[in-house]
């Protein structure tokens, strides 16, 4: 064992054969699986990163939409309020006008009624006066007291 001899060739052959076998059965497959796993992990991480970015984008978009919706709601509310105001003023104006018209019509009516009544009263007074005069002439009593008693009689019967 202490001397070098030809059997050194065995060492060369053995090591080279072992090297070739281990390369086929150990190093290549193990490195392949390690690389594959590294690739897979990288892919997963990249996917996660992409998803995260997408989520952030969506979030920003939703926030914007929410803001826009708020603005729109405000606008709608304002418009509705304005409309209501205009409508209210219109309605109040109309009511005022209607009331004015009504009052005017009523006043006219009242005036007409008054005039009518006056006319009737006038004709009635004339009629009573005529009848009083007639009665007085029939009785030949033109004294004031007979006329007033007659008038009292007429007033009681008319009532």
């Amino acid at each position: 064992m202490l001397n070098l001899n030809w059997s050194i060739i065995w060492t060369f052959v053995n090591i080279i054969v072992l090297f070739l076998l281990l390369r086929i059965f150990l190093f290549k497959p193990v490195m392949k699986i390690l690389d594959k796993r590294a690739g897979e992990i990288k892919k997963t991480l990249d996917d996660a990163e992409t998803k995260k970015n997408e989520a952030a984008e969506l979030k920003a978009q939703y926030a914007e939409e929410l803001k826009a919706a708020g603005t729109r709601a405000d606008a709608i509310l304002k418009e509705a309020t304005d409309n209501a105001k205009v409508q209210r003023e219109k309605i109040i104006d109309k009511a005022k006008k209607d009331a004015d018209n009504l009052i005017k019509t009523a006043e006219k009516q009242i005036e007409l009624d008054r005039q009518q009544t006056m006319k009737e009263m006038r004709s009635q007074i004339a009629d009573v006066a005529l009848r009083a005069a007639q009665k007085a002439m029939e009785n030949d009593d033109v004294s004031e007291s007979s006329i007033s008693s007659f008038l009292r009689q007429v007033g009681e019967s008319d009532d």
């Binding site: 065995w10 053995n14 054969v17 059965f25 796993r37």
Partner: peptide, 24 residues
């Protein structure tokens, strides 16, 4: 040399048995 062959056989067999079924 004989012992070396034995070692080689054990190592290579070990590798064939355990490395073949490698999964992710």
């Amino acid at each position: 040399v004989a012992v070396t062959w034995g070692i080689m056989a054990v190592i290579v067999l070990f590798c064939i048995i355990f490395v073949r079924g490698f999964k992710l």
